[in-house]
Amino acid sequence: MMLALALILDALFGEPDWLWSRLPHPAVAMGRAVGWLDARLNRGTRRQAKGALAVALLVSGALALGAAIAWLPDFGLLEIAAAAILLAQRSLVDHVRAVADALRRGVPEGRRAVAMIVGRDTGGMDAAEVARAAIESAAENLSDGVVAPAFWFAVAGLPGMLAYKAVNTADSMIGYRTPRHEAFGRAAARLDDALNWIPARLTAVLILLVHGAWRHWPQVPADARLHRSPNAGWPEAALAPVLGVALAGPRSYDGVLQDFPWVNPAGRRDPGPAEIERASAALWRSWAGLLGLALVLAWMGR
């Protein structure tokens, strides 16, 4: 029941500015911890081992903090509040819808809005590329910002959820194949892939089921394997046929155009604000399915 309440609390309040303008958000605190470890350990020799040590320290700290919060005699209220803070449904929908609103005002504003949620180059995007980027971000972040933390809360309570968020934050900061982080960030990247393996596929199943679109399942695994990530392709491959759009395709990173294959290539390749809004609606429908699953699990555990 605590997971269901956390999902509802996040959906109602999201990330209120009045609170996080006064206090550091847990994700910010985790990011500072990752940065501190990166600055002190990512040097000299044996960087891969040092990166594994950094991840072990992050996970151990997250598990200890989660256990301490869960131990407090507050009838679970603090645990529910902490879980709600670590979910990102409301903020995800707000950011995705902001791209649709900005794109309606013009492509330059759409580029600026989508740059807030994607890591690719946005300066030369046309309207369709802005829309595809927003939809892809919606699908991927539904998995790692909502379904995955909820999954790990269901499996291992708040300690598991905090540990997942710590690893996911580390991966987003040091899990890249750059000269500085190729070795040091390998443990974070591999562990993040492992922790997201089930949630990514669960997200794809959830998207199809809540939209009555199970007929598309046979093509989802094939399309998912086209993605450079072992996990991100699954929710994208499920959402693309639901919306009737093609996702992925060529895009630019660090000034280099990369010719990625299309996901659902038969779909529309020129989506716009309307398709972004439909993706936002799909996020809420998927959230409702996840809430229903949480309630069923709570009932079964009684």
Rank of each mutant, 00 (worst) to 15 (best):
W197R: 13
L290W: 14
W152M: 00
G124N: 11
A237Q: 08
L158Q: 05
E236W: 00
A127L: 06
W71D: 05
L65M: 08
A213M: 04
L295Y: 02
I8Y: 08
L290V: 14
R201N: 05
P235I: 08
V96H: 12
R251N: 15
G51T: 03
A224S: 15
P179C: 07
P159Q: 12
A54C: 03
W152F: 04
A248K: 08
G289E: 04
Y176A: 06
V93F: 06
W197P: 00
P73A: 02
R269N: 05
W36F: 15
L295S: 00
V155D: 07
V256R: 15
L283E: 08
M125K: 07
A156S: 12
A33W: 10
W152P: 02
P218A: 09
W152Y: 02
S91F: 09
I85A: 08
D192A: 04
W36T: 13
A138E: 09
A84H: 10
V220N: 11
L57S: 00
G272I: 02
A246S: 15
F153S: 04
R215M: 09
P241F: 02
L293A: 04
L247P: 00
F13W: 11
R22L: 09
E140K: 11
T169L: 01
L87D: 05
F153K: 03
M125T: 09
V256F: 12
R201L: 04
V263F: 12
G66K: 01
V118L: 06
W287K: 14
W197A: 15
A134N: 11
A222M: 08
R46F: 15
P241K: 03
L87G: 06
S60C: 14
G110L: 06
G185T: 10
A156C: 10
L191V: 08
F151I: 06
W234T: 02
E182M: 15
A200L: 12
A194N: 09
L239C: 00
A33G: 08
Y164N: 06
A148L: 02
S91Q: 14
D270M: 11
V242Q: 04
A213T: 05
R269W: 01
A281Y: 03
H211V: 02
A246H: 10
A282T: 13
P149H: 03
L63G: 01
W284K: 08
A84R: 12
F13H: 10
G233K: 07
L208D: 07
P273W: 04
I80M: 06
L63I: 09
A56L: 01
G44Q: 02
R43G: 11
A52G: 11
L226T: 07
H211Y: 06
